[in-house]
Design a protein around this nucleic acid. Sequence first.
DNA 1: TTTATGGCTGTCA
DNA 2: ATGACAGCCATAA
Length: 113
Amino acid sequence: MAGTLRGATYTRIYAVVRRIPRGRVATYGQVAALADLPGRARLVGYALAALAGESDLPWHRVVNAAGRVSIRDAEPAMQLQRALLTREGVTFSGSGAIPLARFRWLPKASRRG
DNA sequence: TTTATGGCTGTCA
DNA sequence: ATGACAGCCATAA
């Protein structure tokens, strides 16, 4: 796509997030890697933060490497994320972390079309 | 243009 | 187990 170079990063990140299946989660670093942006996990965080929770994107399916919601406790979106995930069947362990070994999204083919 | 700000992550103490 | 630090670098002001 010629022309849309600026802002292509977020767009690419959103495209990956949109592919995370229901009941699964991915880490920021994982999304970054799938978006062909290895090592830019933070950018994923910025991209999602920019959504401000107002989007049809399954932003709640993205958690940090520890399997925890990476939003500050004071943010209402923090509990929202947990609620949305729970509603999809994702369970949190006693310490409030998602067992990634069980719920991590494993894309069979990381082909970018 | 320069600064400031991050919904991260791996490493080390 | 937790906490501090240093790299990542796009956006917004």
